[in-house]
């Protein structure tokens, strides 16, 4: 095992870049290795949504905000997949690493908490975006889609994937058993997603429920993404971006604070 001379040693920033890249590569390798569980199911689920809600029920509903119902629900369904998969990737990977204790491989290495956080978050973003692309391709088999604003579409999808990656990370930090990583998706994430304007415009709701819906952060993401693709939204795009960024910053700050204190990872 040869000695490394100072000239051979990469600088601290370069070393950190390699560390983060290694975490991301490992994360991507993990979810692509089990693509039958991670990539394929969202495509099948979305195809069923399009068949049932788009082909069978959609024509009876008619147009919504001036577009076909199938086109209207497509952005919401894509966003639903991004949210679910970004969250699932980080929560299952990090909790699995805690459970099998191989998170210690990273903890004993000279990797600051910030980079561990960024590495896992990027892994979640990659899966979220990749699944988003697969689901979009599935949607194109059923309906015509165009992109009104690439900038808004891409920014929203990346920020949303980041936000739910961070949420998954927080869940994994506090989880002590496998039940703990299914409680949040089942009892919080799924209801919020279904009530977040994926299948309907909040204009259809009574005034009271419209106001209640505004407390659901997923509503802002779905509408911002729908704006990016179709140019229609129940929420002003500036407000939607403001909410998404606010949540991203809050969750990032909370995650970093917990990691620095070793909550859930160090004794």
């Amino acid at each position: 095992m040869g000695e490394q001379t100072p000239a051979d040693q990469p600088g601290v920033n370069h070393r950190y870049l390699i560390s983060v890249w290694t975490i991301v590569r490992k994360e991507v390798a993990r979810f692509t290795r089990i693509w039958l569980q991670t990539i394929l199911p969202p495509a099948i689920t979305m195809a069923l949504y399009f068949v049932i809600f788009g082909n069978l029920i959609g024509p009876r509903i008619g147009k919504m905000h001036g577009v076909d119902y199938m086109q209207y629900i497509a952005p919401g369904l894509i966003m639903m997949s991004v949210i679910t998969n970004a969250y699932a990737n980080v929560v299952s990977s990090l909790f699995g690493a805690k459970f099998q204790r191989h998170i210690e491989e990273i903890l004993v290495a000279p990797i600051p908490s910030l980079l561990l956080l960024v590495g896992y978050m990027l892994g979640g973003i990659v899966r979220g975006v990749l699944v988003g692309i697969v689901v979009t391709a599935t949607a194109l088999c059923f309906t015509h889609l165009h992109v009104e604003s690439w900038l808004v579409t891409v920014t929203v999808i990346v920020l949303t994937a980041a936000l739910f990656s961070l949420a998954g990370l927080l869940n994994a930090l506090f989880a002590k058993k496998f039940d703990d990583i299914s409680i949040v998706p089942t009892f919080i994430l799924t209801p919020l997603t279904y009530l977040g304007g994926v299948f309907y415009s909040i204009d259809m709701l009574p005034s009271f429920w419209q106001k209640v819906s505004l407390g659901n952060p997923i509503l802002y993401m779905v509408n911002a993404f729908r704006y990016g693709m179709l140019g229609v939204s129940d929420i002003s795009i500036a407000t939607a971006f403001g909410v998404i960024v606010l949540f991203c910053v809050a969750l990032f700050g909370a995650s970093l604070w917990l990691l620095e204190r070793g909550v859930g990872l160090r004794i």
Binding site: I18, S19, T22, I23, E105, I106
Partner: peptide
Amino acid sequence: NQAGYYGI
């Protein structure tokens, strides 16, 4: 991967 975590 372990080497990668050490920035190698």
